[in-house]
Every structure is written in structure tokens, then in C-alpha cells.
Simulated assay, not measured.
Amino acid sequence: MITWLATDDPFPCIERALAAGSGAPGLLAASAELLPSRLIDAYSHGIFPWYSDGQPVLWWSPDPRMILRPDEFKVSPSLRKTLKRIVRDAVWEVRVDDDFAAVMRACAQAPRHGQHGTWITADIVEAYCSLHHAGQAHSVETWCNGQRVGGLYGVSLGRMFFGESMYASVTDASKIALAALVGHLRQHKVEVIDCQQNTAHLASLGAREITRQAFIAHVQASVDTEPVPWRFDKTILLDVISSAASTAK
């Protein structure tokens, strides 16, 4: 039985989320509203929204949980070569929070294999933009010749980053943004990027599953710590390139 949340209702215990084989594993609750305060409460407890237009707001806490540890980010030889070119070529930039809402809209329009439509609804954009204005959601953007060609966005609480979506309009543009994010989070001792659910693409970049219990324990230890600063540029990629070179030896 899925819990229906009124405006001031707390989330139910995450162990009440639907189990594997239920048809909607990880589904915990539903609500009529998507308030910024509810979003912060959700992420602080390892819960996230995922739903489509015409549905109520659906709240999820899957088990297992897909994560990427920045120290485990996989840089293929071809991506390492691309990152080195990005760093030395002045036409390429990495920008932070240049146009958060536009990145969300671009993610909403990006085609997804086996998926029709988008879960990034107008209400989602409005709610996350409110978090962005409060300094709790950020975009990392890849630019070339003055045009934004890829990026990602997510929620940042304390020493925890909750990845939401990414897009690319040119090859590897989203990977460049992710590599920059990884380099930045490494520098600030952020140990986990939440990737929510397993995909082959994320796995190819080093993401893996952990138990929900382990994930929640990490979230609880991380979200109330000193927040990460959000100012960096493409030179952060030098750390990722160097780390990739060391791993290859």
C-alpha cells in the first residue's frame, strides 16, 4: 500500500518502499504537490521524485541504489584524449550555474533509449529552480564556441551530490561536464554521487550499486556537513586527467 502524503505529512519509513518483483520496486509514497521544502526533506532521507505528466508526484527509494564514487570514475583512453584537448583549446569552456533552467529543459528534451516523453515536467523545473536560487541545486555545463553543448544538474547538500540528469548535443559533452564535476567533488572530499538507478551508461563510467542501507547511512553522515563551494572551470579537468594517467600505469 503506497502512502498518500498531505502537505505536512512526514515520509513513511523507507523500508515500506515496494520490493523487487512488485512492478514498481522502490516506490514509497505519492503526493499532490512538489514543494522545495519537501524536496530537501526527501533528499536528506535518500528519497527522490520521479513521475510523468498526469501522475501524482511519486517518491522513490530503491534498493539497491546506484552511486558513483568520484575516486572510481572511469576515464577511457579516448575520453582522456578528449579532456586533454578541451583543457588546451580556448573554444571549450566548463561553466557552473550559467543557465540552470536551460540545462533542465535541455535534459527534458534529450532522447532516452526505451523512454517516451520526459519526467522533467514543468513542475519539476519550477521546484528545482527554487532549490537552485537557494544554492542547493547546480548545473555543470560544457560550452564550445560560445554555445552550450551539454551539461548536467543535481542537488548538493553538505558533502553529498544527488545527480539528476545530463544531456549532450555533441559527442562526449555530458561526459566532459561529469568529469569536471568529479574533479571538483574530489577536491572537496565528496565521496558519493547519487545516480539513483542502474543504467549501462553509468556503469561504464564506474558507477555501481550499493545497498539502500549503506546509501542512507552515507547520506545521513554527509548532508549536514559544511556545503561544497560551487566555483570552478575547465582547469579542474587536469586533476581527472592526472588521475586517469596514474590508474593506467
Rank of each mutant, 00 (worst) to 15 (best):
S243M: 13
L205W: 10
G154K: 07
A168S: 10
H45P: 03
A102Q: 13
I210Q: 11
R112W: 01
V57K: 04
E191D: 15
L35Q: 14
A29R: 12
K234F: 07
L68G: 01
H184F: 13
G23H: 06
E141L: 13
I40W: 06
F48A: 05
G117N: 02
A127R: 01
K249G: 11
I236A: 07
W50G: 04
D172N: 10
G54L: 10
V190N: 05
L34D: 04
I2S: 08
L35C: 13
A173H: 00
L68K: 09
T118I: 05
S174Y: 04
I124G: 01
I47T: 08
D172T: 11
C107V: 10
S78I: 03
Q55G: 06
A90I: 04
F162S: 12
K249L: 12
T211P: 00
I120S: 00
Y51A: 03
D71N: 09
L131T: 01
E72I: 02
R186H: 13
R38V: 12
G158T: 06
V87T: 02
I124Y: 11
R38M: 14
L131E: 07
A248Q: 11
V75N: 00
I120L: 05
L83C: 02
A245K: 15
D172K: 02
G26T: 10
S52D: 15
R65D: 00
C13E: 15
P25T: 06
F162C: 13
E141D: 04
F215Q: 00
D9F: 05
G154L: 12
I193L: 15
L68T: 01
L205E: 01
S204Y: 12
A24F: 09
